[in-house]
Computed example of a mutant assay.
Amino acid sequence: MAITPDILRYTAFSSDPAGGNPAGVLLDARGLSDAELQAIATDIGYAETAFVTKPGSEEDKQHNVIRYFSPIAEIPFCGHATIATAVALTERDDAGTFTFETSVGPVSITTTTEASGILATFTSVEPAVSPIDHAVLTALLGLVGIDSSAIDTNFPPQLSYAGNTHPIVVLSDKSTFDQFTFDPAAMRTLMDAQGWAGTVTFLHQLDANTFEARNLFPAGNITEDPATGSAAASTGGYLRALDPADTPRRITIHQGRHVGRPSVLLVDIPTQGGIAVTGTAVPITA
C-alpha cells in the first residue's frame, strides 16, 4: 500500500537527521485496522512506527493512546518512537507533560524547549530483572561467536524488563564488542522462541557512568538498532538491581556507531520506580 501522507518522520536521540534512530509517527491513526497499521509500518521500513490510535481531546490534548509496529510485528513499547511522538506533539501543541497509554501501561513523558531543541524524557513502567537460562545464554553467545569468557565479570547477564524484555550482556573487551557479527535470521529465531519483542542488548563500559551499546534487532532490512530507549530503560533497571546502593545516578549510553547513526541516551536511575530516559528528536526532511 502507499505510505499514508500524514506520516511524519523523525530521528530520535540525535540532533542530527543523519544520526539517531528513525521513527515514523502518525498523530491520528483513528479508524485504521491492525492490518493497515502493520502495512504502513512495513512500507515505511523503520525499526518502529508509532500510531496515536486515540488522540487527546480538545480538553486534554496531552493524553493519548499509542501503539507501536516494527516492519514485522506489533511491539509492546518503543522508547525512540515515544520520544519522536512527544517531540512532534510538542511542536504542534507546546511543551508539557504527556501521558501515553501503551499496551504495557501508562507512560509519562515530559518535554522542554531549549536553545538546542526539544528534549523529551519518558519514565518507564516499573522494571523487573530475572536470570537468563544458562542454555539460552550459551546459545545467544554462540550466535555472536563468543563464549562466557568474554563477559565482564562485574556484570552478570540478566533479563531486564522496562516495557520490553531485553537480555543484557556486558562484554569486557572493546575489540570483541566492536567486531562480533551474527546471522540475523538465526538471531530472530532465538528471539522469537524466547518471546524477546525488543532488542538483544550488548554493552561495553567506557567509564563508571558511561556505556556503549549494540542492540541487535533483526526486523525486515534492519539488523541493529541505532538507539533503543526501551533497552536504555532496561539497562537502568538492570544496574539498579545489580547495585541498589548506587542510586540515584545518571548514566550515558552511546549507541549507533556500528551502524553509522551515532546516538546519545541519558538514563536517570532513581532509587525506586520507573527509569527516566532523555533525548531529543528532529525531523527527517530528505
Rank of each mutant, 00 (worst) to 15 (best):
I109S: 02
A120D: 10
S172T: 13
S124N: 09
A135R: 14
I118N: 06
T138I: 02
P157G: 06
L143N: 08
S149C: 04
S130Y: 04
A162T: 01
I146G: 03
H134K: 13
F180N: 02
G163V: 07
G142S: 12
I118A: 02
T110Y: 02
P106R: 06
S148E: 15
G142N: 14
A139V: 03
G117I: 06
L159K: 11
G142A: 15
L143Q: 15
V169T: 14
S116A: 14
A135D: 15
I132S: 04
V125W: 04
A135W: 05
F177I: 04
A150P: 09
L119P: 01
P131T: 08
D147N: 15
A162P: 00
N164V: 12
N154L: 11
P157R: 06
A150T: 11
P157S: 07
G105K: 10
V136T: 14
I109P: 07
T153R: 13
Q179R: 14
A115S: 12
T123L: 02
V144C: 04
T102F: 04
G145V: 10
E101T: 13
S160F: 02
P106W: 00
I168T: 05
V169R: 04
H134T: 12
L143V: 06
T123F: 01
F155G: 01
P131W: 06
Q158C: 06
S148N: 14
D178W: 04
V136M: 11
A115W: 05
P131I: 04
T99E: 14
I151Q: 08
V136E: 10
T111V: 06
D178M: 05
S160Y: 01
V107F: 08
L171D: 05
F122E: 08
S124G: 07
T176A: 11
G117Y: 07
T112F: 00
T112Y: 01
Y161P: 00
T121C: 13
S116K: 14
L143D: 09
I118E: 07
G142R: 10
H166G: 00
L140T: 09
V104G: 07
L140P: 10
D147M: 07
P106K: 06
I118H: 07
F177T: 07
A115I: 07
Y161N: 11
T102E: 08
V125E: 07
S149V: 10
S103K: 15
F177M: 05
S108Y: 02
L137S: 03
H134S: 13
H166D: 00
E101V: 10
T123E: 13
T97F: 03
E101L: 10
I109M: 08
S108L: 14
S116Y: 03
V129K: 03
A139W: 00
T138R: 13
S160A: 15
F180D: 01
S160K: 01
F155S: 03
F155D: 00
P157Y: 05
T153G: 05
G163H: 07
I118M: 10
T113L: 12
A128N: 13
A120V: 07
I168P: 02
